[in-house]
Design a protein around this nucleic acid. Structure first.
Lengths: 255, 255
DNA sequence: GAGTGTGAATCAATTCACAGCT
DNA sequence: AGCTGTGAATTGATTCACACTC
């Protein structure tokens, strides 16, 4: 249907908060740092070193410092980072200083689970509306969120000031839903449907592909099995490797 | 610290399916290609070119060919790839030739939604057991899958031959659940809890962080807003030498 | 002619290592 | 002394472009 281009993969643009373009990979980690910081704050910490924070966040300290440097970070040399100050900086950078209202499209198992997911609310994301194709659901509500027909997506989203759309419908309907979200002025889409969405440029799409995640794990199981069995499933095999090495896994610091 | 040459020189990079190590980024895309191929196959296609397949998968054709070359791919020059042959090759590589039984820990909204997610079954993943901390759920079942106490995780998983564990519990319980899964012999974990799991080496962890995904989208909303408003949210580094916004820079992929 | 497979070049991300603050 | 911030070096991934096959 849509002759749009797929949204550009990386597309890290410049003119960013700290004055430099923030790499995509870094942005994802900022949210992780924020989480880690909050849990440290709950534990009573008021300052943290990059080493401590990195450990909690599961990354190396150098990477963490580099990441934070993109925000023109406010650490103190010889001391560390002021926790509440850094929390505030991360929240600002991630746009969490203002509340966001999201629309969830698809009131199936997944859609309903997302409405109830408290991790969203905890970060200032509220589900303003649910949409579904099934007329039986219309007029009902899930945890206090009204369910609307998909045909009403445009007016309802505009009225509620929706800025992020979540696609939780089966693959067949996903592109149509996406097109409607974009037409309704939404510029950010979180897609759970197992299809690559085509969008006009400027629209941000994040894909969460549950089946693909399992397949990646399955790949590693298969690789390991092949290794142990001396690789029975494949042809080419020059060097039969000793199996001890583990190239993957985000292993902790090796002593 | 000086583990410069710490890695054993004898054990060369291990041999992967196609004979070369497969980059992580590629593995994720293989699942996408498989999906794209299946939908093309349903449309009656029997051969595809890298160009066609790449379009459906939302990547560039060069990247696709490079990715497939890691499997010692079987395309035909001047023609393209035999669809069913390539499907078989991808399934083999991703370990989908054998069925996998997964355990879902956490029978809340998300856990139950995952049990019902047909995208799993469609790729040969069956949920063999559900576990939950709440005694009220024990002995019950969700869509035919029995709910067990978390304390029974080890025996039940071993009995069912679980190879993949899915963590769908709140953050507080996640590390404990992960430890139990690992103790029960599971080597692959799909984690939905918003914490970084610590695991022994050799354990594969994939993290799905729903709140983080929204935060990444929120970041882009904030960046865009800052751009439009001439960036009111930041102070640091007023020494922006070059023009504030540079519409160039690799950015948009030309059609 | 059409389209794969792949070295070589480019681009991005990570890690190192150290200068510079407190 | 301790720890951040960051250029420089390295590693990894993507893109190019073309030889080669059908």
């Amino acid at each position: 249907m849509s002759p749009h281009r797929a949204s550009p993969p990386g597309a890290a643009v410049l003119g960013e908060p700290g004055g430099r373009p923030v790499p995509e990979a870094t942005i994802v980690r900022l949210a992780v740092y924020l989480r880690a910081l909050c849990s440290l704050a709950e534990g009573g910490a008021t300052v943290v070193s990059s080493e401590e924070l990195a450990t909690v966040a599961g990354v190396g300290s150098a990477k963490l410092r580099k990441d934070l440097s993109f925000l023109g970070s406010h650490g103190t040399r010889g001391v560390g980072y002021d926790v509440s100050r850094l929390v505030a900086r991360l929240e600002l950078t991630l746009g969490l200083d203002r509340a966001h209202v999201v629309a969830v499209v698809g009131a199936g198992n997944l859609g309903r689970a997302l409405v109830g997911y408290d991790g969203f609310a905890r970060r200032g994301f509220t589900v303003g509306a649910l949409f579904d194709a099934d007329p039986d659901t219309h007029g009902g509500s899930v945890l206090g969120v009204a369910v609307h027909p998909i045909g009403d997506l445009d007016p309802v989203c505009r009225h509620l000031g929706i800025t992020i759309g979540v696609v939780a419908v089966p693959a067949e309907g996903a592109q149509d839903v996406c097109d409607r979200l974009v037409a309704a002025g939404t510029t950010c889409v979180l897609n759970f449907a197992p299809v690559v969405l085509a969008t006009p440029p400027g629209i941000q799409v994040r894909q969460v592909d549950l089946a693909a995640e399992l397949q990646v794990l399955s790949f590693h199981l298969a690789r390991r099995a092949a290794e142990v069995l001396g690789d029975g499933s494949h042809e080419i095999d020059p060097a039969a490797g000793a199996g001890a090495r583990d190239p993957r896994t985000k292993t902790v610091v090796s002593p």
